[in-house]
Design a protein around this nucleic acid. Structure first.
Lengths: 129, 129, 129, 129
DNA sequence: GTGGTCTAGACCACG
DNA sequence: GTGGTCTAGACCACA
């Protein structure tokens, strides 16, 4: 399990961790039902506090990515991640708008932008490396 | 000038302000060379702290969107916004990755995603409303 | 004997087990004097730890629902469950208060609430299914 | 603001706190838009750690009871608490079932049970004392 | 001064 | 051994 944190970044560590795990799921490094390391072991592995890991796990649980079983530890949601609903789409649009607005200002054309997206998509769909 | 702030959001107010102005430029509500309200007047207009407006303006200046002159006040950069450079593209990709990774997890297909982007592009290119 | 456990729930398994058995008594699936499976057999039936079943049985014994005999095994209390006493009523009120307070906040009216209670009562009094 | 915590109870302090505030809203001690004490001041007032108060506030925020404004502090949701939805009703039923099942076992009749509920309802609707 | 984040260390319930 | 809870103390971004 590869976790790549940037301790210099202003992005909270727990959020970076959340994203790294989501990325792992997208890349199919983690399959539904697969176990994740315990709070403690992951924390010591990457050298951060267990509460930080716990916060990331709690958020992933809230969003339906993982399940936390008492004492059995943490597993990727065996039923798969909840599908995109209306709320998610609105959130996604809200997140995309600033990126696109700035791209327009900087003359970064629509074609280039879409190409970049496709490139990232392809990057994930390469599957387990 | 329409400024739409969400005081309940976890997004800092100064960042919301930064984005609203960038959006205005993208939508061509603000043209190069056009004047923006002074820190004081904008702050009192939307009922927020001077420092908050100032922080937003400073960031916009740093990124080349505006110029701040002691006498002439604040104007949209007459030379236009700096074009997208390599650094910007990397930053953009870094911002897009989490959005795309989560979309994949949620079965929100590439086509839909690209369609959403196009819609937002079209939305901005409608021009001055 | 139908036992329905939710291993993802934050409610401890032994408490779920306790409640399932209480529910069985309320529904008259279990009659006074009737035998319950031994700790061992129940544990292996539902695939949980011996200690977990034991903890549930101990709690049921403490509250007077069952009797545990070294030889005869576990039986539903032949004298019936102890009647509601003052202590029980206070406990019940303490448990109901949060539910009712939240219902009020959420505009879930008293009539609806009482109707829901009646429905649950009726549901149990249907008798052995 | 009266907060009554039982430090002996097995119920987590933060949950007791959550309930006390919900109770305050139900009793109309707290009106929509009204400010709540800051995390720090409430923590020192009742002699607990600020993180414990924070956890309670975060949960109340998640459930829509309060809003947390950056730096402006905490206020009761001005739009009122979200109405009871289907999910809430199911949760409520799930919480009521064990209470009712045990009542049936203990010969605590339906009439008495409903009377107790009504009593609690009346108790809250007395309004601000 | 406010909430957000992170660290550190401790105890407990659970299985 | 696991997650859940609580405490304590620190720094930072925000307004």
């Amino acid at each position: 399990m590869l976790i790549n944190l940037d301790f210099e970044s202003s992005e909270p560590i727990y959020q970076q961790l959340v994203f790294q795990i989501i990325e792992g799921i997208a890349r199919k490094d983690f399959r539904p039902g697969e176990a994740l390391p315990s709070v403690r072991s992951l924390a010591s592995d990457i050298g951060i506090n267990l509460h930080t890991v716990n916060k990331a796990y709690q958020q992933l649980k809230l969003e339906g990515f993982i399940q936390i079983h008492r004492q059995k530890g943490v597993v990727i949601n065996p039923d798969g991640v909840p599908k995109a609903d209306e709320r998610y789409k609105q959130q996604l649009e809200k997140n995309l708008r600033p990126l696109i607005a700035e791209s327009i200002c900087r003359d970064y054309g629509e074609e280039e932008f879409l190409l970049l997206c496709k490139m990232i998509y392809k990057n994930y769909q390469g599957g387990r490396t």
